[in-house]
Computed example of a mutant assay.
Amino acid sequence: MTPGEVSAALGRAVERAGGCAADVGLRCVGPGVYRSPVALRVGVDAEVVANFVRDVAGIGAVEVDGGFLRIVVERPEELASDVARNPSYGWGRVKAVAWADRPRTFDNPGFRVRYAYARAAAVGRRARDLGVEAGPPEGLGRREELALLALLGEMPGWVRQGELGGFLVRLADGFHDVYERCPALPQGGEEPGALHAARVTLAEAARVALGNGLKMIGETPRERI
């Protein structure tokens, strides 16, 4: 489930509980884990809302903590496929950011973001050259992969706030960690397998999110730097 789908499900549940939820205030706090104060904001019973959300397909668990709702989706890794298939993921209006083109080192946050996009695009090109097709995002359990999934879930919240520059640096760093520690492509005579296909999908999701982020802050994404 995408953050948008979780938000929509929560909004419907609030309305069924007798409230009006124009903005549920959903915030991603982990891979597939979301938190919302909407019940407190609109004055409805959080337990009633939770019960309605629990009935939604794709929701694994809903907890109530001091009026806050904590929602856990059943398959957090599916967000990678959802983002990879959605070229407009996270799109919205945000402030422009002026990052210098140089130095082209990791000390420059702009370079880190641009290079992450270029790396993600390169994974897709090399995968096609090697005949490795993107596949279901199953088996994405490494710490770095889960951290990247959580960052992808955070993106719509930062877009709603209109602040994206700092988040894009975090997203880029998350992808660099995955790229360097969780190889998406076969190495050393290794045969391609399901995990490679899953990681290609994750790389494509990162490419979509980073590319949209760069466009929103006023840059043209470059596949080669």
Rank of each mutant, 00 (worst) to 15 (best):
S7F: 08
S7K: 09
S7I: 03
R12V: 12
V14K: 11
R16W: 11
G18F: 05
G18S: 10
G19W: 01
C20N: 13
A21I: 10
A22S: 14
G25P: 06
G30K: 10
G30H: 11
P31G: 07
V33Y: 12
V33N: 03
Y34I: 06
V38R: 05
L40H: 04
R41G: 07
V42C: 11
G43Q: 02
D45Y: 10
D45I: 13
A46P: 15
V48G: 01
A50H: 05
A50D: 00
F52Q: 06
V53E: 05
R54E: 12
G58P: 10
E63W: 08
V64M: 04
V64Q: 12
G67T: 14
G67H: 00
L69T: 09
R70P: 05
I71Y: 02
V72D: 13
V72P: 06
E74I: 04
E74P: 04
R75H: 14
E77K: 05
A80S: 03
A80R: 01
D82M: 11
D82F: 12
P87V: 03
P87Q: 02
G92T: 03
V97A: 15
V97Q: 14
A98M: 13
R102K: 12
R102L: 13
T105M: 05
P109D: 02
R114P: 11
R114Q: 14
Y117P: 00
R119K: 15
A121E: 08
V123C: 09
G124K: 11
R126I: 14
G131S: 10
V132T: 11
A134Q: 08
G135N: 07
G135F: 10
P136K: 12
L140S: 07
G141R: 14
E145A: 01
A147T: 10
L148D: 07
L152M: 05
L152I: 10
G153E: 07
M155G: 02
P156R: 00
P156S: 04
W158S: 07
W158Q: 11
V159Q: 07
Q161L: 13
E163M: 09
L164Y: 02
G166P: 14
L168D: 07
L168P: 12
L171N: 13
A172G: 04
F175R: 03
F175E: 01
H176M: 09
V178E: 06
C182V: 14
P183M: 03
P183H: 02
P183K: 03
P186I: 04
Q187E: 15
G188N: 14
G188F: 14
G189R: 11
G189E: 03
E190K: 05
E190Q: 06
E190R: 13
A198W: 00
R199G: 10
L202Q: 03
L202T: 12
A205C: 00
A209L: 01
L210Y: 08
N212G: 06
G213C: 02
G213D: 00
K215M: 15
I217V: 15
G218R: 09
T220C: 08
P221L: 01
P221R: 06
R222F: 02
R224H: 10
